[in-house]
Amino acid sequence: MRNNLKKEKSILDGIDSKLIEQLYTNARTPVTELARAVGMTAPSVNERLKRLEESGVISGYRVEVNPVVLGYSLMAIVRMRQLPGKLKALEALIQSIPEFVECDKVTGDDCYIARLYLKDISQLDPILDQVSELADTNTAIVKSTPVKRRLLI
């Protein structure tokens, strides 16, 4: 019975969902504006946000940086299959190369799938040369992103 109550508490209602959507669009939205958007008072919205943070639904507020404005005009997806006994070394190498901005450890033929930003194509081979000492790679240049990271509610 207690587990069922706990599960029910974690379900978002329409107001929670609306608040999260607003913050996902702009994490700096003032509480007064959030309150207007959901038809509540600012103190009530503050309490909801506090509850969402304490329950772990909201785990942080982030800044989104545009890589193109910083000069990173290319994005690549690199699939990696580590060479025998090189898994930990490969993971450490990926973490040490700042152009790798995201990496997932996955099941299947590959062990890692990573997102890499480059200022130009000439940066790709030196990075892949480092990785190829520890893994077989398969790389694809991203042409566009029809579905950007989106809210899961």
Results as ranks from 00 to 15, higher is better:
Leu23Tyr: 06
Val45Met: 01
Asp125Cys: 00
Asp16Ser: 13
Arg36Val: 09
Gln130Phe: 06
Ile77Met: 12
Ala114Glu: 05
Pro84Gln: 04
Pro146Leu: 03
Lys18Met: 12
Lys86Glu: 12
Met40Asn: 08
Arg48His: 09
Thr41Glu: 01
Leu116His: 12
Lys119Tyr: 14
Gln22Met: 13
Phe100His: 01
Lys88His: 05
Arg62Gly: 04
Leu90Glu: 03
Arg51Tyr: 00
Leu70Phe: 09
Val57Asp: 02
Lys86Asn: 04
Leu52Met: 09
Ile94His: 07
Leu52Asp: 15
Thr107Gln: 01
Val142Thr: 08
Ser73Leu: 03
Leu52Ile: 11
Leu151Phe: 08
Ile58Asp: 00
Lys6Val: 05
Ala35Ile: 10
Ala92Pro: 09
Met80Trp: 05
Leu152Lys: 14
Gln130Cys: 03
Asn4Gly: 08
Ala35Asn: 06
Lys6Ile: 11
Leu12Lys: 04
Glu33Pro: 02
Ser17Met: 15
Gly14Phe: 14
Lys105Leu: 08
Arg2Phe: 13
Cys111Gly: 06
Gln130Arg: 14
Glu21His: 12
Leu93Val: 05
Glu54Tyr: 03
Val142Ile: 12
Val78Tyr: 05
Ile20Cys: 15
Leu52Cys: 14
Met40Thr: 10
Arg115Leu: 12
Lys143Met: 10
Arg115Phe: 03
Leu70Gly: 14
Asp13Pro: 14
Glu8Asn: 08
Ile15Tyr: 05
Tyr24Thr: 12
Val63Gln: 04
Leu23Asp: 01
Asp104Cys: 00
Ile121Asn: 14
Tyr24Pro: 03
Ile141Gly: 05
Thr139Met: 03
Leu134Lys: 11
Leu49Thr: 04
Lys88Thr: 04
Ile15Met: 13
Lys86Phe: 05
Ser144Asn: 07
Leu74Val: 11
Thr32Trp: 07
Thr32Met: 08
Val57Leu: 07
Leu128Val: 02
Glu99Met: 05
Leu93Thr: 08
Asn4Glu: 14
Arg150Met: 09
Arg51Asn: 13
Val142His: 01
Gln123Leu: 09
Met75Thr: 11
Ala92Cys: 03
Leu74Ile: 10
Leu49Met: 15
Lys86Met: 01
Ser17Gln: 15
Ile11Asn: 10
Val131Glu: 07
Asp16Met: 06
Tyr117Met: 09
Asp13Val: 11
Ala135Gly: 04
Lys18Val: 09
Pro84Arg: 09
Gln123Ala: 15
Arg150Lys: 00
Asn26Ala: 13
Glu8Trp: 04
Asp109Tyr: 11
Arg36Leu: 12
Ile94Asp: 00
Cys103Pro: 00
Ala92Tyr: 09
Asp104Val: 04
Gly56Gln: 02
Thr137Trp: 08
Arg79Tyr: 12
Glu99Leu: 05
Tyr24Cys: 07
Val78Trp: 07
Ala27Trp: 00
Glu33Leu: 06
Gln123His: 10
Lys7Pro: 01
Ile58Phe: 06
Gln82Lys: 09
Ile121Gly: 15
Thr137Pro: 00
Lys50Arg: 15
Ser96Pro: 13
Glu47Thr: 15
Met75Tyr: 07
Ile127Leu: 07
Leu5Asp: 15
Gly39Leu: 01
Ser44Ala: 15
Ala140Asp: 00
Glu91His: 03
Pro67Asn: 09
Ile77Gly: 09
Leu90Gln: 01
